[in-house]
């Protein structure tokens, strides 16, 4: 039985791997900005990043010391 297309059919959009990689990079930047408490990036850079984004992290509800 041929089923007619639903009345509200919306064409799917093909999402290639590259787009998912972009999303993954965005999530990694998100992690570094907000979660990094010395778990991945060690040393002075992490310390400065941590202090610079300190207010932002607390404000966005991310766990912090």
């Amino acid at each position: 039985m041929p089923s007619p297309a639903p009345a509200t059919a919306v064409a799917p959009i093909r999402v290639p791997l590259l787009a998912w990689l972009l999303a993954a990079v965005a999530l990694i930047v998100f992690y570094l900005l907000l979660q990094e408490n010395g778990l991945v990036v060690p040393g002075q850079v992490a310390e400065y990043l941590h202090e610079f984004t300190h207010d932002g992290r607390h404000a966005l509800g991310v766990p912090c010391h």
């Binding site: 965005a26 930047v29 900005l33 984004t53 207010d55």
Partner: peptide, 16 residues
């Protein structure tokens, strides 16, 4: 920095 972080996070989340 808090405002920069909020903006950077918003751009990252919006791309996702």
């Amino acid at each position: 920095g808090g405002m920069v972080a909020a903006t950077a996070v918003a751009i990252c989340l919006a791309l996702v």
